[in-house]
């Protein structure tokens, strides 16, 4: 396929993912509101917030890294989309496999952290003490989440003998009994538990806890920087859900399936978040080091002997 056509399709896919991420975020907030007995925000609220933020007239600056932080975060989200197959079409050169290549799982693991580190640098330059506190908590929790998650990913990679997300999706085709959820239950369980931390909802949302430490790393961000971060957040949420969908839940063969599966995966973290109150950071870190880590180690041991 012509590279320009491919780029155009990838850009279109990115736009779909961005808008789906915003709609999904609004839907989840609406669900939370309904549980509390409220009507909640209108579905169009994320778009209005985005336009409002772009229309802010005065902005401040704290230096170059302060500008680059949100760009890093958006790069992390877009990078995840670029190098991960979105819709499985039976051919590695299909329209929606994007720029997926052999060994993209390693790159995706890297991109997961990339946005967060960029934000840490940007918010660090903002100089606000609450931002620094949010970063410290965010990185501590992320380290605890990454350990079981990486062990589970490695187990899946050993199981299928490949680091290509496309091949892992391909191996799971032909019915739900072929999903990693059933062929490698320990890895799937580790992913399902660790995913709660990766998606960052309650009980694992102390990083941006509005009542305890303001809004976390984004304390000093305003206007279009905040708009940037909002769009990046919407993309990253879909991307995280898409990564777990590809690795554990059999991938998607069309956009409808992708939207349904990402919705259910994201809903799982919102469901847990509505039921359970927020953890303190030491509680959440120790929680990830117990059952999810044990499951991750078991998943590795299962395929090591």
């Amino acid at each position: 396929m012509n590279i320009y056509v491919k780029l155009a399709y990838t850009f279109l896919g990115l736009m779909i993912v961005l808008n789906w991420g915003m709609l999904m975020g609004a839907t989840m907030r609406k669900i939370g509101a309904r549980v509390a007995g409220r009507h909640g925000i209108p579905f169009k609220q994320p778009w209005i917030d985005l336009f409002k933020n772009i229309g802010v007239r005065t902005t401040i600056t704290h230096g170059i890294m302060y500008y680059i932080g949100p760009v890093f975060r958006l790069t992390g989200g877009v990078g995840l989309f670029l190098f991960m197959p979105a819709v499985f079409s039976g051919s590695p050169y299909g329209i929606w496999t994007n720029f997926s290549f052999e060994g993209d799982l390693i790159l995706i693991l890297y991109f997961q952290v990339f946005g967060m580190l960029g934000m840490a640098l940007g918010a660090g330059e903002g100089g606000h003490p609450y931002a620094a506190m949010g970063i410290a908590r965010g990185l501590a929790q992320h380290a605890a989440v990454e350990l079981p998650l990486t062990l589970a990913f490695l187990s899946i990679a050993i199981q299928y003998d490949t680091f290509s997300v496309y091949k892992i999706v391909e191996a799971q085709q032909g019915g739900f009994q072929n999903w990693v959820l059933f062929t490698n239950p320990f890895a799937a369980a580790a992913v399902i538990l660790a995913m709660l931390g990766a998606l960052g909802h309650s009980p694992f949302n102390l990083v941006k806890a509005p009542n305890e430490i303001l809004i976390g790393p984004a304390t000093e961000y305003e206007g279009s920087y905040l708009g940037f971060m909002q769009s990046a957040g919407a993309i990253i949420h879909v991307m995280e859900a898409m990564l777990f969908m590809n690795l554990v839940f059999g991938g998607a063969t069309n956009w409808f399936e992708l939207i349904l599966k990402t919705f259910l995966i994201y809903f799982w973290s919102v469901f847990v978040g509505i039921v359970f109150p927020r953890f303190k950071i030491e509680q959440s870190v120790t929680w990830f080091f117990k059952v999810p880590l044990l499951l991750g180690v078991l998943a590795i041991l299962m395929y090591s002997f």
């Binding site: 509101a33 009507h39 925000i41 303001l214």
Partner: peptide
């Protein structure tokens, strides 16, 4: 329920 009107609290 002020969220209906697009009013939200920011910290």
């Amino acid at each position: 329920d002020m969220f209906r009107f697009g009013i939200q609290m920011r910290p």
